[in-house]
Every structure is written in C-alpha cells, then in structure tokens.
Design a protein around this nucleic acid. Structure first.
Lengths: 159, 159
DNA sequence: ATATTTATGGTTAAGCATAGTCAACGCGAA
DNA sequence: TTCGCGTTGACTATGCTTAACCATAAATAT
C-alpha cells in the first residue's frame, strides 16, 4: 500500500499511539512538507480517515501559530456506545452506506471480519425484499444494523 | 504560549477565577500597557475569547473613568438556557462554525467529549446531504444542533 | 450653563501566516 | 467503460497584530 494517504494515516496513528494523551498537535504545512505533498492532502487524510464516524474529533486554527489537533474519542460506557451506534446508523441507511460503515467498524476492531460478513448477509436479505419501497427498506436496515451492532459490540464491552 | 492574545485571555481568566463576583472591571489601556500591545488588541481578545458563545457578556464606557466589564453568563432556568442556545446557534449555521461552537461548549463543560462526538457525527451526516443547497443545509443543521443541545443540556430539568 | 479639552474606549482595514474548500484530473478495479 | 479513491493547485477564509481614525464621557474653563 504505497499511496501517500495511507502513509500519512499510519504516521498519525503512530503519533497517537506514542502520545500520553488521547490527542496530538500538528502543523498542516509541516506534515505536507514531510511527505512532499500539497497541504490540502492532509485535509483529505483527515476527512477520509479521522472523521467523527471513525471516532476522532478535529480542532484547528488558521493564521500564525495555526495548528491541527486530533483527538481520539473512546466510548467508555455501554450507553455511550449505544448512542454512538444510534448516531452512526441513524433512522435509515442503505446497503452501500451500511457496508462502508461496517468496513470502518472492522478497521477499528469493534467487530471481526466474520461478524461483518454475517451482518452483511443479514442486511442483504433485507435489501432483497423487493415488495418494499427503497425508503422502507432503508429504515428496516437501520433498525437491523443497530440491533446487530449493539448486540455484538456491547456483549464484548460488558465484562 | 506564543501569542499575546492567549496570554491576555489567560490573564483575564485568572482574574475571573479569583473574583468573588461573576464579573470583573478592567481598564483597556492599562491592560494594553501591561502586555505591551496596542489597546485595540484587547478588543480582539474580548471579541474572540469572551463572546456569548464563550459564556460572557461585555459592558463598557468611554471617556474619563472609562472601563470594561466582563460578566459571566449564568443560566438560572431552563428557559434561560434555551434562549442562550438559541442565541449561540441562531437560525443557520455551517459545519465549521458548529464544530467551533461545540469545542467551546465542551470547554464550558456544558457537554462531554462523547456528546460532542455524537453531535458532530449527526451534523456531518446533514452536511453530507449534497442534494440540498448550502443554505438549506445550514438551516437544517441549526435546527438539529439546537434540538440535540437542548436534549443534552436540559435533560434533567426538561422532564 | 455652555463650550472646550482631556481621557478614555470602539471600529476598521491592511498585512501576514496559516488552514479549508472545491473542482479537475489520474488511475486502477469492478 | 464507469466509478470511486487519491492527488493537485488555485482560490477562499480565518486568526492575529498593528495603526490610523472615530465616538463618548468627564473634567475644566469660560
């Protein structure tokens, strides 16, 4: 995997691992210089790899002494996780969105690959109910997805 | 501590912490002299660090014996808080502004970091609805944000 | 009383150093 | 081919600092 985006992602991940705190401070232009790319590449990495859905918050300032701060948010309680799942999925979701979400969750090690495949099978069954409208299917899929995620993720967290 | 604005902010914050009352009196020119900056720098600090979003109101008077008074906003009733939220968010807000606001609200301990993340996820979903115009999304986001904030901040009182 | 002077604070715009957005383009996979 | 991800750079927005100019309240002179 030799594209710059992945390299920058890994670099930031390593910084976060090393950091005592759950957050790190960066200079966009410095990072761009390190990787020999345009500054806006950093924005792309943040948007595609460190978004709220991935469990990160970004703070930043422009101007002199500007910075980018990346915070990793951990869901400490089952209630937090339930709310988090509710927010990620929402009241309606289509099959492709759901699959992208599952991919991210697997990347965060919140679900295993097998669990992900099982969920996708379940979702596909719902998506194949052609008697229902698209909208109706999206609502049903959201409910199903949330139930499955909550069962899987919270079971492991509730020790 | 590299810029004067942050130093002045901290200075004022310390004064407010020490003060018995929920407000303090300052002389603009004295403060400017202490920090060796032009007086209008103080206005910049007040505008960017002690606005209603930050939980403060400013009163002042010109001429001889002039002063600047900084008051901490206190929301005594749920209705006060609703008005405060309405003032801060307004009828339209974009994703960046909303994020900055959430950063401040977390700083004021009105929301937790987890709650902030959840709200950002929800806002991002709205911001990603590309079928809608920018203006329409801003209006929707303002409504969503106010609803979420009111539910979170007023959860106890509102029942 | 009224006008003038003095002592405050307010507003705005310019300039620089950042960061953000957007749309076009390239490339590889389905 | 078509689609989605990644890359790029031109353009935009923001944050801070400074300074010139504006507005107002109080003190003083008349």
């Amino acid at each position: 995997m030799s594209n710059i985006t992945c390299e920058i992602e890994k670099y930031i991940y390593d910084l976060l691992s090393e950091a005592e705190e759950e957050n790190i401070l960066l200079r966009r232009k410095d990072l761009a210089e390190i990787f020999g790319c345009v500054p806006s590449q950093i924005n792309y990495v943040l948007r595609s790899r460190f978004s709220p859905e991935h469990g990160f918050l970004i703070e930043s300032r422009r101007g002199g002494q500007g910075y980018i701060k990346i915070l990793r948010i951990t869901c400490k309680t089952p209630q937090d996780m339930r709310s988090h799942i509710e927010d990620m999925v929402g009241g309606s979701i289509d099959y492709m969105q759901a699959r992208r979400l599952l991919e991210k969750l697997q990347g965060r090690k919140l679900i295993t690959q097998q669990e992900r495949l099982l969920i996708e099978v379940a979702l596909k069954n719902t998506d194949d109910i052609n008697e229902l409208s698209y909208q109706r299917r999206c609502v049903l899929m959201a409910k199903l997805l949330k139930n499955l995620l909550q069962n899987i993720i919270l079971e492991e967290e509730d020790l």
